Simulated assay, not measured.
Amino acid sequence: MKKIAKKMIKYGIIGGAVCLLYTGNPAWADVTLQLPQNITILAENGKNTKMNKRASLPDGDNQIVVQFQGELSRKHEDKDADFEYSDTFVIRFNALNQTLKMVTPRINRLLELEKWNKKPDIRILDSAGRELDIQIARLKKDGFQIFRNYETELEAFNKTDSPAAVDTLSSVSEDSVSPPAAQVSPKNQSQSQDKTDMAEDMLDYWYQQADEEAKARFKQRINKQ
C-alpha cells in the first residue's frame, strides 16, 4: 500500500507539472526580458505598467518604454547623492520564445547620465550572448514630466515614422478610452478631482520643504525635455 501511495503521489506531482505547462497560464510568457539594476520598464506594448524590473512579453514584435532611475553623485568625489531620472526611451525588438537580457553601461554620476541621455547605450542579448537588432527613440514630452500617461503618448508616437514606432499599437488604447463626459457621474468626477488636488498638494508640500539648490534642480528636471 505504501508503494502504491508513493507512486500515486509521484505521478500526481508529474501530472500537475505537465498541466501547468500546457494550461496557457499567462504567467508563462514566451519572451522574458531581464533588466539592469537601475533601468525600469514604464510601458509594454502600448500599455502603462507598474515599474517593473522584469518583463514577460508575447512572441513577435514588442515595444517597451524604459527609464534610468537611481541615486547619482554630481562629482566623482561626492559622497552625497540625489535621486535622478533619465529621459524615457522607446525600444522596439522582435523575439521568439527566448530569455533576454538588457545591458547598459554602469551610471554612477550625473555627468554620465547626461551623456547617456544624449546617446543611450542600450543592448538586448539572447541567452547565447548574441545582440538583437533593436530600434531606440526618445519619447519626448514638453513641460511637467511626473505622472505621465504613456498609453496616450505612445498612441501619438506610433503614428510617427520613427523606426521604433509600431503600427499595430497605434489603436491599442481604444480598449481603454474613457467614457463620454455625459456618462461620468458627478461622484466619479469629484473623486478624480480629489486625486488631482491631492497630488498637487503633495508636490507643493515637498517642494516647499526643499532647499533652494534642490528647488533649482527640480525646476531644471521639469523643463529639460
Results as ranks from 00 to 15, higher is better:
residue 208 Q to K: 09
residue 185 S to I: 07
residue 129 G to R: 07
residue 157 F to M: 00
residue 215 K to F: 04
residue 168 T to R: 03
residue 149 N to L: 03
residue 138 R to W: 04
residue 162 S to M: 13
residue 169 L to G: 03
residue 142 D to T: 06
residue 162 S to T: 10
residue 203 L to V: 11
residue 215 K to L: 02
residue 154 L to S: 00
residue 159 K to L: 02
residue 188 N to H: 12
residue 193 Q to M: 12
residue 116 W to N: 06
residue 159 K to S: 00
residue 199 A to R: 11
residue 126 D to A: 06
residue 198 M to C: 10
residue 217 R to P: 06
residue 135 Q to F: 00
residue 130 R to T: 11
residue 178 S to T: 13
residue 140 K to R: 14
residue 191 Q to C: 12
residue 131 E to I: 09
residue 175 D to V: 00
residue 137 A to T: 07
residue 153 E to I: 14
residue 204 D to K: 10
residue 185 S to E: 07
residue 197 D to V: 01
residue 129 G to M: 08
residue 166 V to W: 01
residue 125 L to T: 04
residue 167 D to N: 12
residue 217 R to S: 03
residue 204 D to Q: 10
residue 182 A to I: 11
residue 172 V to T: 14
residue 181 A to V: 11
residue 177 V to I: 15
residue 134 I to W: 05
residue 218 F to Y: 09
residue 134 I to T: 13
residue 149 N to P: 07
residue 154 L to Y: 01
residue 179 P to M: 09
residue 168 T to F: 02
residue 139 L to E: 06
residue 173 S to Y: 12
residue 216 A to L: 05
residue 194 D to F: 15
residue 136 I to M: 08
residue 122 I to A: 04
residue 176 S to D: 13
residue 197 D to P: 00
residue 134 I to R: 10
residue 175 D to P: 00
residue 121 D to H: 10
residue 196 T to F: 11
residue 123 R to F: 03
residue 182 A to S: 10
residue 137 A to I: 01
residue 200 E to Y: 05
residue 149 N to D: 15
residue 136 I to F: 11
residue 216 A to C: 00
residue 139 L to K: 02
residue 125 L to R: 10
residue 144 F to E: 09
residue 148 R to P: 05
residue 213 E to D: 10
residue 169 L to D: 01
residue 154 L to T: 01
residue 150 Y to S: 06
residue 205 Y to M: 13
residue 191 Q to A: 14
residue 148 R to C: 05
residue 191 Q to N: 13
residue 194 D to W: 14
residue 166 V to D: 04
residue 168 T to H: 06
residue 192 S to C: 14
residue 143 G to V: 01
residue 199 A to W: 08
residue 214 A to T: 13
residue 132 L to G: 08
residue 137 A to Y: 02
residue 128 A to R: 11
residue 208 Q to H: 06
residue 116 W to D: 03
residue 140 K to M: 12
residue 157 F to E: 05
residue 162 S to E: 15
residue 217 R to F: 00
residue 132 L to W: 05
residue 185 S to A: 06
residue 206 W to D: 08
residue 164 A to Q: 03
residue 172 V to W: 00
residue 167 D to C: 03
residue 156 A to V: 04
residue 190 S to E: 14
residue 166 V to R: 08
residue 212 E to K: 13
residue 146 I to R: 08
residue 117 N to W: 10
residue 167 D to H: 10
residue 163 P to T: 03
residue 191 Q to W: 04
residue 158 N to Y: 08
residue 152 T to I: 12
residue 191 Q to T: 07
residue 116 W to C: 02
residue 174 E to S: 13
residue 187 K to V: 12
residue 181 A to T: 08
residue 161 D to M: 06
residue 154 L to F: 01
residue 189 Q to W: 08
residue 134 I to K: 09
residue 175 D to Q: 09
residue 166 V to P: 02
residue 157 F to N: 05
residue 204 D to M: 09
residue 139 L to R: 02
residue 125 L to S: 05
residue 210 A to M: 12
residue 200 E to Q: 11
residue 123 R to V: 03
residue 205 Y to Q: 11
residue 128 A to F: 08
residue 187 K to W: 15
residue 177 V to M: 15
residue 130 R to Y: 11
residue 199 A to P: 02
residue 182 A to D: 08
residue 148 R to G: 10
residue 150 Y to D: 00
residue 180 P to T: 03
residue 163 P to K: 03
residue 158 N to G: 02
residue 128 A to I: 06
residue 148 R to D: 05
residue 140 K to E: 15
residue 168 T to Y: 02
residue 185 S to H: 07
residue 152 T to A: 13
residue 131 E to Q: 13
